[in-house]
């Protein structure tokens, strides 16, 4: 009696194990998990559909965009991460579907260039500023003594300059 029971239990366990295997195969045929609107929107916020000009996928009302959002939903429900979904779209439709290009060269072109140009601006300003500071020490030491002694001379120079300017204008 005990041995029969044991065999029965083993057979039962075997039956359960087998059915688990076969049932899990069915589960894989339909792996969709419910995806909320919020998850779809979180990914769609980062995508741009070429049909709508410059608005993100989550705010576009056209049928094309609705289809794309459905595609996002399906990909998410298949277990893809948001990054994988975006990669998938870039692979199929090109770099224009994301807000900063995925391709490294284009990405560098987009993001680094403004900093490069700005750096040039900063360098140029720095150079000008340094030149100004170099000129200043030459004037400063001579200023205190020179001022008193040359006030008369300064006025004459000033007048000569005005005459020269006026002459140049004719």
């Amino acid at each position: 009696m005990n041995r029969l029971l044991k065999i029965g239990v083993m057979l039962l366990c075997l039956a359960i194990a087998l059915s688990a295997v076969t049932l899990s195969a069915f589960a894989q045929d339909d792996p969709r998990r419910p995806v909320t609107d919020d998850e779809v929107n979180a990914v769609s916020k980062k995508l741009y559909c070429p049909v709508c000009e410059n608005i993100t996928l989550d705010t576009c009302g056209t049928l094309a965009c609705a289809q794309w959002r459905e595609e996002v939903r399906i990909l998410l429900s298949e277990g893809k991460t948001p990054e994988q979904v975006i990669e998938n779209f870039v692979m199929r439709f090109g770099d224009r579907v994301v807000g900063t290009p995925a391709d490294p060269t284009l990405r560098a072109l987009a993001l680094i260039t403004p900093w490069l140009l700005s750096a040039l601006v900063l360098l140029a300003t720095g150079a000008v500023f340094l030149r100004w500071r170099k000129e200043r020490p030459a004037a400063a030491p001579s200023a205190p003594e020179a001022k008193a002694a040359t006030s008369v001379r300064t006025f004459a120079e000033y007048r000569a300059r005005i005459e020269a300017d006026l002459a140049a204008r004719r």
Binding site: T56, G94, R96, G99, T100, L106, A110
Partner: peptide, 11 residues
């Protein structure tokens, strides 16, 4: 470079 890109809010 022959490609159209979009520079959006992220950039």
């Amino acid at each position: 470079m022959g490609t159209t890109i979009t520079l959006g809010k992220d950039y």
